[in-house]
């Protein structure tokens, strides 16, 4: 479903502090599977996930989504692909403070301009599905860590993306919450989603719902 061909990424290219964070990664991510990127800190997991999720562009190499070449798209189209295809769950959750849980969940759909009532109904459905129905009117600062993450998951799902990208999703959670999270990942897989995770948490890569673990080291795949 997603194909990476000899992808490379340099930071500060052409300057004295030039740094190649990704040094030639070729990888195929299968649809409707849970794939985990595993590796030591600094090995390039986050960098690779950002490129796959259209948050940044590779310096060299190609990224294809199905048959569409993503790496060459202009920013506008890249944003459209990101909005329609990928849902993100960030390590720090990255909820917008000061507005309600419901509004946070609806935010990714604003640029689509659909009818408000339908959007609200969808957001409420998602919140109910993740046991947050009672918290819809809460401000996000008041949420517990687990609730904040489930809010972030609802937000990632509101545009019904086919791929979910989560960078270190369990880094801020305790063991029980991490297990719950992997349970949700299993449900998403069952619902037909493709899930892409990065983690160095055994709770994640040893979980039974994971189909494939890809090891990274120094910007390359370890052992191919």
């Amino acid at each position: 479903m997603i194909e990476l061909v000899d992808v490379r990424k340099a930071f500060n290219q052409g300057r004295p502090n030039e740094f190649w964070a990704i040094r030639g990664v070729s990888l195929t991510v299968d649809a409707n599977r849970v794939t985990v990127l595993k590796g030591p800190s600094g090995s390039g997991k986050t960098t690779l996930l950002s490129m796959i999720g259209c948050l940044s562009r590779p310096t060299a190499g190609r990224i294809l989504f199905e048959t569409q070449l993503l790496s060459g798209l202009p920013e506008r189209f890249l944003t459209a692909v990101r909005r329609g295809t990928f849902g993100f769950i960030f390590q720090q959750f990255n909820l917008i403070k000061g507005v309600t849980v419901l509004e946070n969940v609806m935010l990714p759909a604003y640029p689509l301009g659909g009818p408000r009532r339908r959007l609200e109904a969808r957001a409420h459905d998602l919140l109910a599905q993740f046991g947050l129905a009672a918290k819809a009117g809460y401000r996000v600062e008041w949420l517990s860590g687990g609730e904040a993450q489930r809010t972030a998951i609802c937000r990632a799902l509101v545009n019904d993306p086919r791929v979910l990208v989560a960078d270190e999703p369990t880094a801020n959670l305790d063991t029980q919450l991490s297990r719950d999270f992997m349970g949700i990942v299993g449900d998403l897989r069952a619902a037909g989603k493709t899930v892409l995770l990065s983690s160095h948490d055994p709770e994640v890569y040893d979980s039974p719902v994971v189909d494939r673990v890809v090891e990274m080291r120094d910007g390359r795949l370890a052992g191919g």
Partner: peptide, 11 residues
């Protein structure tokens, strides 16, 4: 954050 979750620069 807004850009990451799919807002365009123009939005």
């Amino acid at each position: 954050i807004l850009k990451a979750i799919g807002w365009e620069t123009s939005d």
